[in-house]
Amino acid sequence: MIEVKDLYKSYAKGKVNALNGITFSVEDGEVFGVIGPDGAGKSSLFRILASLLLPDSGVAVMNGHDVVKDYRKVRQIIGYMPGRFSLYQDLSVEENLTFFATLFNTSIEENYHLIKDIYQQIEPFKKRRAGALSGGMKQKLALSCALIHKPEILILDEPTTGVDPVSRKEFWDMLGRLKEQGITILVSTAYMDEASRCDRIALIREGEFIASDTPQGIIDSYSGILWSVEGDRMSAMLTALRDHSAVKTSFAFGDKIHIAVADGLQAGELKQYLAKKEFSDVRIAPIKPTVEDCFMALTNE
């Protein structure tokens, strides 16, 4: 279990507040996602939990061990995958893995079953230098290295940044299988669509959790009325919608526009308004929000 209370962290002599009082807990075997843009404080939080950075104040306890007082113990029970590729570029795939196994007094053979599923995909290239691997393979090696000492808690800092949608899905499938083995997983991402793969999520912005719940709970607590609008000349329509007094926000969502509207506005009324501005063949439908809609609504408040 991860228990975090009132964590604060600032840089540059207090000029930059990275964390402004973060409190949350993660149950054993849970996948907990911290979701928010770059610069929101995700990496600072994770580095504190990995005992690599001291908080200014507050407490963090990993499976009963305090990250400041018991940092040696914490380091034994966690696996940490930092945001930037952290392996030894000049060592081969196999050498990197052996190195991390040795640090924890174990061997690849002893814990092979833990990493088998992931490591098998890169094993054909085990003699290749880590620096010469493609992005997806580096990611699999880094995850194997973080797992080789059989951690109880896995901390993954933006494992899918810069990764294409198909590889991202594969990565989350791998995490799902690790969860089944009982590993507690704390993972951060800037991709809102990955929220649904977590048991619970926290939305982070400017060092604060602006919401924390199950993905469905976050969606259910959206209080506005949301419609999707489709038609031709989408970019011009986006501006036209913003000019309507009953439209609170208007954002592009792929081939549709999502608008939050005031109570009482009728779809027919909006269609007429758009028709006057020469938008024809407009389709309007009420929709359920996505986590991204919720994030934008919360940051707009």
């Binding site: 928010g36 843009p37 770059d38 933006e158 940044t161 800037a190 809102m192 912005r205 592009a252 934008m296």
Partner: peptide, 10 residues
């Protein structure tokens, strides 16, 4: 736009 806030991205 990698890693950028959803509103900023738009």
């Amino acid at each position: 736009t990698g890693g950028v806030d959803p509103a900023m991205r738009r």
